[in-house]
Design a protein around this nucleic acid. Sequence first.
DNA 1: TAGATTGTTAATCGATTAACAATC
DNA 2: TAGATTGTTAATCGATTAACAATC
Lengths: 215, 215
Amino acid sequence: MCDDLVIIPKATLGRLPLYLRVLNGLHHLNIQFVSSEEMAMKLGITSSQLRKDLSYFGGQGIRGTGYDVAYLLGKIKAILGVSQNWQMAIVGLGKLGTALARYPGLQQHGINVAALFDIDEAKIGWKVGELSICHLSELTEKKKELGLEIAALTVPAQAAQEVTDLIVEAGIQGIWNFAPVRLETPENVIVQYEDLVVGVLTLSHLLSRRLGKMR
Amino acid sequence: MCDDLVIIPKATLGRLPLYLRVLNGLHHLNIQFVSSEEMAMKLGITSSQLRKDLSYFGGQGIRGTGYDVAYLLGKIKAILGVSQNWQMAIVGLGKLGTALARYPGLQQHGINVAALFDIDEAKIGWKVGELSICHLSELTEKKKELGLEIAALTVPAQAAQEVTDLIVEAGIQGIWNFAPVRLETPENVIVQYEDLVVGVLTLSHLLSRRLGKMR
DNA sequence: TAGATTGTTAATCGATTAACAATC
DNA sequence: TAGATTGTTAATCGATTAACAATC
């Protein structure tokens, strides 16, 4: 409960999910030890950086041998909160919300899609996988019932702030926001922005450099 | 064709899409000038950072007045390659691929979804919006026909490398990869990784700190 | 002119990397 | 012991910020 409170640089934190993935892969192959060099190669980073990152939370490598895959995996899972189970609501069951509801990566990382909400009367009661879509007005009630702690926000941009207010009111403290707008929230609420356009615009920038402006 | 070749720091580049969004908003409201202070507030950054960022490509602000919204918009669009039109293929028409095909943000930023591919025979010929799903074997042909330059890769992780090889072979140089694996590609191919799990794990980390490990 | 706001400097902060002593 | 690989240091690099002269 304590060593988790060491301050880990943001840049390092951003890489931990990638480390987690590689370690998971190695673990499934029943590999016990991995050197920083090997792992860094798979990740396309330097081994120096990897060792430095791991040093922030006591990677516990063995000189001459490498790191214990299972141990490191557990450590990183703990830091990322993956070892806990989080109950997540999806708010807005358009194409994106539906895709998210079925995304297997979530369950694999301890995120349990536990409830679905929309305001479109036509959608209420429909099933996505095992779950029925509820009306957004039931959010507070379901929050208490299911212990919802994360809400994925997949509504149109115009509705995002209004829906956010309801999510906050229901007492949910983590919002995973897919709407391309900045949300106003109280300090105690954490918003993670997920903006697909940023990725593709970065790509288009790099391409336009590479290919030249005239084509 | 030249001033685009100024070197813009990566960190700055990553913020340009956000600037673009805010400027678009202002432009739609018919606002002509905006100060760095105002804009920075909307973005949740410092005005210093914004001015510094804009200075890399000659923001051309007017002292005492601010920046010309329309001018700045055009400038940033040019840098991001948004002012061109890109033809994009979506490879893998699962839930995520389908959601992407219908995502309005793409068209709005100069990315035109021009072709859909899958290998599942059952899906071939189905329509998503205006477009029919083609078999992946037609990729090279369609690439030439439509001038495809970007491929969004939304296939399962196990298939990702194999499909990537086909994309590269077809001569497509930009890959927007949603599969949670590192892709091996020749140097002339640009891969942009889009990993949803990173976002939600960051959130779960922050939450587990906030809420404490025991609940 | 007076007020406002830019563009830029210089200081600070944070992240990356190479290198190597420590040690399994 | 010899070989391998870590953990950490110190140098370097890049990003952010405050401050203010320049100027509209």
